Computed example of a mutant assay.
Amino acid sequence: MDLTENEPLPQGGYAEIRIVSDTPEAARAVAEVIRRCFAGAEQRSYPVPGGGTRLHLTVDTETAAGPARTWLATSRQPTGPGPHPEEP
């Protein structure tokens, strides 16, 4: 999508992100990664002519979302059977 002269810029400290994908699930997965780094407002999604999804997300570039975990750490499944028998 091209930025047009008529499109307003976001207020200072914020960025508008547009994600275009063939499925809503893929767009939401990308938005989730972004929200782990930046505080943000609610996302808005729209159908794309010819199929697909366009997701709009506004993020606060001056405020971190909280302690960020790396993609590798969040993608790993827990290992082991659970706590050791001696643990409460």
Rank of each mutant, 00 (worst) to 15 (best):
R35I: 05
P85R: 07
S45L: 12
G80A: 07
Q77A: 14
S45F: 08
A27H: 00
P10C: 05
P88M: 08
P67T: 15
H56A: 09
T63L: 14
R36S: 11
G12A: 12
E7T: 09
V59H: 03
C37W: 13
L9Q: 07
A39F: 08
I19D: 01
E25D: 08
L55D: 00
V33H: 04
P81F: 02
E5W: 00
I34W: 02
N6S: 01
Y46N: 09
T74N: 12
R36A: 12
M1V: 08
D60W: 05
S75Q: 14
A39E: 10
G50K: 08
R28D: 11
T63V: 15
E32V: 11
F38D: 05
A65P: 10
T23W: 00
A68I: 11
L57Q: 02
A27E: 00
G50H: 07
E86A: 13
D60K: 06
V59K: 02
Q11I: 10
S45M: 14
Y14W: 15
G40T: 03
R35M: 11
H84R: 12
T58W: 10
P10D: 02
R54W: 02
R69W: 14
R18P: 01
A15W: 07
T61I: 15
F38Q: 06
P8W: 00
R35Q: 14
G13K: 04
G13I: 04
R69A: 14
A29D: 10
G13L: 03
A27I: 01
P47R: 08
L3A: 03
I34S: 05
T61N: 08
T63P: 09
E87A: 12
Q77T: 11
A31H: 02
T53P: 02
A73Y: 13
A41C: 07
P49Y: 09
E32H: 13
E42Y: 05
V59W: 01
A26I: 03
E62A: 14
G80W: 05
G12S: 12
A65G: 15
P85E: 04
T58P: 03
P10T: 05
G66Y: 13
P81A: 05
T61W: 10
Q11P: 09
A64R: 13
Q77R: 15
I19C: 03
A41W: 11
